[in-house]
């Protein structure tokens, strides 16, 4: 777990004091992919770079698993945190395998163990070692370099990985591919990931939690659904975009909106898995057809019925999201979309 406690960072620039990060408090849970998003200059990258002390906070406290990062040995701290940056930042004079094995090398692993680990990780990110291990970065495409960057960050199996706009420099198609890859990789390795981006789509696609920043301040922190359904300020509404209603359908899950199972009478009816998005649930219900019951059950991963959602409320949510511009959930006072 990472905590930021009233963290600020000021720079002196041409005699002026610039507040790059202004009193940010944030908790990043273990195993979560926490997105830091905001326009350029919002302080998101600086915030992230303070975690591995590439920047030093001017005020506040940052802890990793309860330990103050400023009290830790900086080199040791960084070796325990994976780091991925835009365009990979690969060392051009080292081969792909040597790049991946860099941190293990710094940690003093034996040569053959490093090689094994590099090959394993290249496989994980979809670059067959036989084909890629001994190439040099300049021989790879942008997307491939980025995959190597991710593999390198995971090499020493750090519990935490920081990613600074890792997919910012690749074309949209490759980017989508890499995002899917990351989801797959994250499901396999389950790291605590801090992910900086300015792409709201990427944030919604990847983030368990999203922290939206502007002018150095934390504007809102929550799940994708929180940002969509309960935007804290008009800025959040503006930033999450025009088609936010549709996004809400895409990123809000049934489990988040269903009434608790105990509060409604037990009836028959369909049961839908809670992790379905509202949009997916709509498609699923259309496929199943009429049931004669006024709603459906929502189940957890174990198949237990944990919630109930009436068609009336379900339809209201769809209508709200698909309604004319201006009548989005944010302005509708939360009536139609219950918390």
């Amino acid at each position: 777990m990472i905590t930021l406690d009233h963290v600020s960072k000021t720079f002196e620039s041409k005699g002026r004091t610039v507040r790059a990060v202004d009193d940010v408090s944030l908790t990043i849970g273990a195993g979560q992919l926490h997105v830091l998003i905001g326009p350029s200059g919002s302080g998101k990258t600086t915030t992230m770079r303070m975690i591995n002390r590439l920047e030093t906070p001017t005020a506040g406290r940052i802890t990793v698993d309860g330990r103050d990062v400023l009290a830790m040995d900086v080199v040791e701290l960084r070796r325990s945190i994976g780091y991925v940056i835009q365009q990979g930042g690969l060392l051009p004079h080292l081969t792909v395998a040597e790049n991946v094995a860099m941190v293990p090398r710094l940690l003093g692993w034996q040569r053959h163990r490093r090689r094994e680990r590099a090959e394993e990780l290249l496989g994980l990110v979809g670059l067959p070692a036989g084909q890629f291990a001994d190439r040099y970065p300049r021989e790879l495409s942008g997307g491939q370099q980025q995959r190597v960057g991710v593999a390198r960050a995971l090499a020493a199996d750090p519990p935490i990985v920081l990613m600074d706009e890792p997919f910012g420099a690749v074309d949209p198609i490759t980017r989508k591919q890499l995002q899917r890859e990351l989801r797959r990789v994250q499901a396999a390795v389950n790291k605590t990931i801090v992910f900086v981006t300015h792409d709201i789509g990427e944030a919604f696609l990847l983030g368990d939690q999203i922290a939206l920043m502007a002018d150095g301040r934390l504007v809102q922190n929550g799940t994708p659904a929180d940002l969509l359904r309960r935007p804290a300020t008009p800025f959040v509404t503006a930033f999450t975009g025009e088609d936010r209603g549709l996004r809400a359908l895409e990123y809000t899950t049934l489990a988040e909106v269903a009434d608790a199972a105990g509060s409604v009478p037990a009836t028959d009816g369909d049961t839908l898995p809670g992790e379905l998005s509202i949009l997916e649930a709509g498609r699923e219900l259309a496929r199943r057809g009429e049931t004669g019951v006024d709603g459906f059950w929502v189940s957890d991963r174990g198949g237990r019925k944990t919630g109930y959602l009436s068609y009336r409320r379900f339809a209201a949510m769809l209508g709200e999201a698909l309604g004319p511009a201006g009548a989005t959930a944010g302005e509708a006072d939360g009536d139609a979309l219950p918390a």
Partner: peptide, 27 residues
């Protein structure tokens, strides 16, 4: 030496001497 490369190397936890020996001087 490319700033991105230095940044990545620092982020990986190279000490000052390692940064010089393994990154800056070879490049």
């Amino acid at each position: 030496v490319d700033r991105a490369v230095l940044d990545a190397a620092r982020g990986m936890g190279t000490s000052g001497g390692q940064l010089l020996r393994m990154v800056e001087l070879p490049l």
